[in-house]
Design a protein around this nucleic acid. Structure first.
Length: 205
DNA sequence: ACCACGATGAACT
DNA sequence: GTTCATCGTGGTC
């Protein structure tokens, strides 16, 4: 990963409209530097808004947990789901308005052996194709809640690998795993053809 | 004080 | 294919 085209994404990227950030995060990479460096390309996201979004944690206003969603963009929002799995979100929008993008699926790129070990799997199949799975594979847990993902000195940040995503590469669907607020298409993922192209790229690890 | 909510793997059948 | 186990948050009563 020693290419000039690869750069850490700054805070401005996240300060825009949440839906836009959710689309723009497709093709970007999550990097964690824990026991070893792991990198995964984001291939599915969901946008969550604030007081006007019944599916959002921030729907009912500021609480100790949701205050991060109202705060500075580019901050990791991690929470426990079903008592077992951590889900990784990035806070979006201007400070004061709530918003976050849930990362739902990754294409493993670097540190695959570490990811397999964390997931207790020997195949790359289904290694990080779900929000709980990818957090486990990347070593993300509640200790990462509140971390700044715009700082490459941290052990968790987002990198632009230079992968170009066109609008026609992006598909939209209804958000999943929720009962309210399913009306709008706020889940975004890459077309199969695009995934195969990304899979063919040779990444240096 | 109580209840609804939510992702995944394992262990069944 | 179905069922089960797992727990912290926050709303409602």
């Amino acid at each position: 990963m020693e290419d000039k085209s690869k750069k850490v994404i700054g805070r401005k990227f996240y300060s825009r409209n949440t839906e836009k950030v959710a689309k723009k995060l497709l093709g970007k990479a999550i990097v964690t530097k824990k026991e070893s460096t792991c990198v995964g390309v984001i291939i599915e996201t969901e946008a969550y808004f604030g007081l006007d979004d019944p599916a959002s944690h921030a729907y009912n206003g500021i609480t100790p947990r949701t205050k991060l969603m109202f705060g500075k963009p580019g901050i990791a929002y991690v929470y426990l789901c079903y008592g077992m799995y951590y889900l990784f979100n990035i806070v979006t929008g201007k400070e004061g308005s709530a918003g976050a993008v849930l990362i739902r699926s990754l294409l493993p790129v670097c540190g695959i052996d570490m990811m397999k070990k964390r997931r207790n799997k020997k195949s790359i199949k289904n290694l990080s194709n779900g929000p709980g799975k990818l957090a486990l594979a990347m070593g993300i847990d509640i200790g990462d809640n509140g971390k700044d993902v715009t700082n490459s000195k941290n052990d968790l940040f987002i990198l632009d690998l230079g992968i170009i995503i066109y609008n026609e590469d992006i598909k939209a669907g209804k958000r999943v795993g929720i009962k309210k607020g399913t009306g709008k298409l706020l889940r975004f993922y890459l077309r199969h053809e695009k995934l195969e192209k990304i899979n063919d790229i040779k990444f240096f690890c």
